[in-house]
Lab assay of single mutants.
Amino acid sequence: MASQGTKRSYEQMETDGERQNATEIRASVGKMIDGIGRFYIQMCTELKLSDYEGRLIQNSLTIERMVLSAFDERRNKYLEEHPSAGKDPKKTGGPIYKRVDRKWMRELVLYDKEEIRRIWRQANNGDDATAGLTHMMIWHSNLNDTTYQRTRALVRTGMDPRMCSLMQGSTLPRRSGAAGAAVKGVGTMVMELIRMIKRGINDRNFWRGENGRKTRSAYERMCNILKGKFQTAAQRAMMDQVRESRNPGNAEIEDLIFLARSALILRGSVAHKSCLPACVYGPAVASGYDFEKEGYSLVGIDPFKLLQNSQVYSLIRPNENPAHKSQLVWMACNSAAFEDLRVLSFIRGTKVSPRGKLSTRGVQIASNENMDAMESSTLELRSRYWAIRTRSGGNTNQQRASAGQISVQPAFSVQRNLPFDKPTIMAAFTGNTEGRTSDMRAEIIRMMEGAKPEEMSFQGRGVFELSDERAANPIVPSFDMSNEGSYFFGDNAEEYDN
């Protein structure tokens, strides 16, 4: 993207840094990872977990959730003011799984939030270390993106479920800051804005008074975040219109849905970061690795190297396929839920299948599930090659597409044709070009129609051997075009429920 120079890199967003050079960025990201790792080690000690239990991804998720809940100030305040039966607002906890007599047992633990905050700050040299908290939120978000298709949420806001490739980060909490905003897809931002506008339509006082002023500035800020994701002048001009509207209503909703559809071809720039579970960072720190000293990046080879040398386990339900569970977590670790499966298959070195073909449910185990038949197995999170994460949407291309997802959002900077089903997408653009945004709409449609099938995206960008740390010898991959490109292809993934 041309304006790259004016933006802070995501590592800076990730670490609240002012302008830093590459070495400083690597050190501050490393410091953040160190903090998460030290916190995780301490929690495993508190909970008396064995090494194996500490490497269980379900335990990692519970521990991450506990610290996120302990620092969720708004919710904590709300819980104190609106006490609900049987919930102690000062405590947080969740299921911890232990191996007892050759069987997995679930144990519900409860801790004072104050105590968890103390352990977290102690692991982070006394700081609140917001960057580390956001990092864990993005890992949870990436896992949700890989596990669930947001059909219901899309339909509720009037969008087409086939636009799911635009929904990265749709389950990120509001408090995820600049680093969170960077990884949100165009569809996620559109959905947040539509929800806001709908509230304004239904509630006369939404934009009024002292609160209304705050609401208005939040609305304009979200519009600017979305505008910054678009790469064409016409899309940005249309966002200006939406932002400046005196009284946002149905016309703005129409414009936003139009823009979301246009992003299936004229893709937005959305950041991709490899955020790993805390149970990967903990053992690495415990083994003596100093992330701050060595430096770390979320968008280069580092996460690949770390996963190459990590042992992570997962509980497996009786009829689940461990290899499929591994694929789910591998995609989440690489922030690749909406990437082209052919690119992923090449990088991973084994075939990556669409969601609907995987015999696996989510990673988390519900409290009512029976533990008797639970097994555990090693997650295979290694890769054959590594590639640089991208934040450009890439230019655009036609490809055989599917009944489910009709476009992709690249996660890796790797040369390819970008699949999208042009006739299906263009069919949504018939007729409606009147109104105050008509010239911009016409211009956007013209650009979409001009998108050429034979153009290559990320020209000359390749993948790298894991021994090639400096990215000196790019390998331009070859793809098996007979395979499906979309992950949520004609899909039956479970729906995400809060």
Rank of each mutant, 00 (worst) to 15 (best):
T146A: 14
I316R: 00
R243H: 00
G17R: 03
L259Y: 06
D302M: 03
M32H: 10
P322Q: 04
M32P: 07
K214N: 08
P477W: 11
V155Y: 04
S367C: 02
S170G: 06
R174N: 07
S217V: 00
N144C: 05
D340L: 15
T151F: 10
R400T: 01
R470D: 11
L172W: 06
R361Y: 08
L193R: 07
R121P: 14
R74C: 08
P83A: 02
E375L: 00
C279A: 08
S345H: 03
D468S: 05
K98R: 01
N21Q: 00
R19G: 00
S165N: 08
R348V: 07
I406Y: 12
Q122Y: 09
F346T: 01
Q459W: 03
M32L: 08
A427C: 04
L47Y: 06
I119T: 13
G362D: 06
P89L: 01
E24N: 00
F488A: 11
A70F: 09
S383M: 10
G356E: 12
W207L: 04
E495L: 04
Q364G: 12
W386I: 03
E495H: 07
L418D: 10
R246M: 07
M371V: 14
R99T: 02
A181K: 07
K90W: 00
M66V: 14
E443S: 12
R317N: 11
R446V: 01
Q122A: 04
I388L: 12
V352I: 15
H324N: 02
S176R: 04
G356A: 03
R195W: 08
S310I: 02
Q241A: 08
I41L: 15
G295D: 10
G300F: 13
P318T: 01
R156A: 13
Q459H: 02
Y10L: 00
L466S: 15
A451K: 00
Y148Q: 08
G228W: 13
I316P: 08
M163R: 05
I225E: 12
E114L: 01
G37S: 04
A153T: 03
D421N: 05
V190I: 14
V363I: 05
K214C: 08
M196V: 12
L328E: 07
G404R: 03
A471N: 10
S287V: 10
D16M: 10
G356T: 08
I119R: 06
Y487Q: 11
R19M: 10
S310D: 09
G17C: 00
T147I: 14
I194T: 13
A237Q: 00
E18M: 05
D439Y: 03
P173F: 01
G5C: 01
M105R: 01
Y296P: 06
S217E: 03
N142T: 13
F206H: 04
M239F: 09
V190S: 00
Q327V: 04
D127P: 05
N498L: 01
R102L: 15
G37W: 10
V100F: 04
R102S: 15
N125V: 02
A263M: 09
L259C: 09
A472V: 15
I63M: 02
R19F: 04
L226N: 11
V155S: 00
P419N: 10
D255Q: 11
K7G: 11
A427K: 00
E434T: 00
M66Q: 05
E292R: 01
A337C: 01
E294M: 05
R384P: 05
L110F: 08
A263D: 13
A181G: 01
Q20G: 14
H135M: 10
W330M: 06
A260G: 05
A278N: 12
E210R: 08
G490H: 11
M222K: 14
A85I: 15
R213C: 07
P474L: 14
A428V: 05
A401E: 13
L79W: 08
R416Y: 12
L154K: 09
T147G: 08
Q122M: 02
E244C: 08
A323M: 03
K422I: 08
R204F: 01
N59Q: 09
R317H: 09
K357R: 04
F479E: 10
A153S: 06
N142Y: 15
G460S: 03
V408Y: 09
T378W: 07
S367L: 14
W139R: 13
L358E: 08
I225L: 15
N321H: 03
W330N: 09
F291E: 08
V186Q: 00
V329C: 06
S367V: 03
R342A: 00
E81P: 13
N321K: 14
R175S: 06
A260N: 10
P173C: 15
Q42D: 13
E469N: 04
T360I: 12
L193F: 05
S383R: 12
M196W: 12
T433P: 01
S310E: 09
D302G: 13
T433I: 13
L418P: 15
M43F: 09
R436S: 13
S176G: 08
R317W: 11
A336N: 06
T151K: 02
G5N: 12
I445V: 01
P303I: 07
G209W: 11
L266E: 10
E320V: 07
Y289H: 01
H135Y: 06
I425L: 15
G5A: 01
L47E: 07
E81W: 15
I253V: 14
I201E: 14
P303G: 10
W104E: 10
E115S: 15
R361C: 08
Q4Y: 00
N247G: 00
F479H: 04
A332F: 04
G30V: 05
N417F: 00
L266P: 05
R102P: 14
G460A: 06
F71D: 13
G349E: 14
D34K: 04
S50G: 03
M440S: 15
A337N: 06
L259I: 01
Q235S: 11
I41M: 00
A2W: 10
R118I: 01
K357N: 09
G169Q: 09
G86K: 00
G93M: 08
I197F: 13
G209F: 08
S28G: 01
V186K: 03
G282T: 08
I253Y: 10
A237T: 06
E114M: 04
Q168K: 01
Q231F: 12
G393P: 02
E369G: 09
R261H: 08
I194W: 15
N321Q: 03
P277E: 10
S287C: 14
N334G: 13
M1G: 10
R470N: 11
R213Y: 10
M196E: 13
D203W: 10
M456P: 13
F230Q: 15
E449T: 02
E114C: 00
D101L: 01
L143T: 05
A284G: 14
Q231V: 01
L298D: 10
N397C: 12
Q327C: 12
T378R: 00
R470P: 11
R102W: 08
D128E: 05
M448G: 06
K351L: 04
E449G: 13
E220P: 11
E455L: 15
D34C: 04
T390C: 10
E380S: 08
R75Y: 11
Q364W: 03
R348M: 08
H82P: 01
G158S: 09
Q235E: 05
I475G: 06
E320H: 10
V29A: 03
A27L: 02
N309K: 01
G228M: 06
L307A: 06
M426H: 01
E294C: 00
N334K: 03
Q58T: 00
V363E: 08
G180H: 03
R175A: 10
L266Q: 10
N125E: 05
P474Q: 12
R156H: 09
T15A: 08
S438W: 04
E294T: 00
I25G: 07
G268E: 14
P423T: 02
F479A: 15
I475P: 04
A493T: 06
L315E: 01
P83E: 02
L381V: 01
F39C: 13
S377C: 01
I96L: 08
V155T: 00
P318Y: 06
E294N: 02
P474W: 05
N370L: 12
L379Q: 14
Q399T: 00
M371E: 06
L358Y: 11
V329R: 03
S376F: 08
Q399V: 14
L108K: 07
A332G: 12
M374L: 05
S478T: 06
R74S: 08
D145Y: 04
R441A: 15
G394M: 10
G362V: 12
H135I: 07
D127C: 00
